[in-house]
Amino acid sequence: MSDIVLQRHDKVLQIGLNRPAKKNALSQQMYRELTAALAQAATDNSINVVLLQGSDNCFSAGNDLQDFLGAGELNAQHPTVQFLYQLAQFPKPIVAAVAGLAIGIGTTALLHCDLVYAADNSRFQLPFTKLGLCPEAGSSVLLPNLAGYQRAAQYLLLGEAFDAAQAEQMGLVNQVVGQHDVLSLALEKATALAALPADAVQSSKALLKPQQSMTLQTIANELVQFQRLLNGAECQQRIAAFFQR
């Protein structure tokens, strides 16, 4: 069974992360499947909205580090890199339903979503510096633009965790509900969005994101620094310590 589950709800494509044994940590195969699903949805006129969700207890614990480290250089062929660019350029609305842990890419991916609904048990964290790494997915520009520099520095430099109420306060999350209600709410909003004229919605999304070229350049800049840091001794030591916990 695939760790990525696709379901159709009329004009909504629901993409589910389904790797509970690993807390939905993203493997390279999952990145490939996510990229393929988004690429297909981008050109399929019968799909107006994508709904991204995890489980009731965990959205995603981030990268599967062991799998990620074995995938080679962060170049254009790397599955993670391909996913980042596909997500950043996706032309149709993405609605996210988040519950439980949203760590690393589990949080930065939300910065590219158009509507985010979170359960009250959600816990977000961007622990890049704790691993000797830097931000990714354009978060070094998207998070300051959303939350202000000082708040972004708190989460990207110190790597402090934050809860659903804090995420809603900063604008990362649209609404907080109970963990058993978050998926139904997100699907309700995605369905309402999908019922609107698709051209008007997609044109409006493009107008709402005039900084896309800056975001793409930021992703490229982050990848250069991420690769450099990943190759460094300090990062290697911290990752080794992570695996020994």
Rank of each mutant, 00 (worst) to 15 (best):
G232M: 03
Q169I: 00
L69G: 00
A206H: 08
Q14F: 07
K189L: 05
I103R: 05
R8S: 13
L223Q: 06
R238T: 13
D3K: 10
Q244T: 15
D181A: 02
Q202P: 02
G138M: 07
F83D: 02
A102T: 00
Q66S: 15
K209A: 07
M170E: 02
A152Q: 01
L52S: 01
E234F: 06
L187E: 06
A200R: 07
L158V: 03
A39M: 12
L185K: 01
L208P: 01
N231R: 12
A71K: 08
Q125D: 09
C58P: 01
L158I: 04
A42W: 03
G72N: 04
D56K: 12
C58Y: 00
D56V: 10
S204H: 11
A137D: 15
L51I: 12
A161E: 11
V98A: 03
S184F: 03
A96Y: 06
Q28N: 15
H9E: 07
Y155C: 01
D67Q: 01
A109I: 04
K130T: 14
D114Y: 08
I4M: 09
D67N: 09
F59Y: 10
P20L: 12
A233G: 03
A109G: 06
L111C: 01
L216I: 07
A241P: 06
A36S: 13
D181M: 03
D3T: 14
E33H: 10
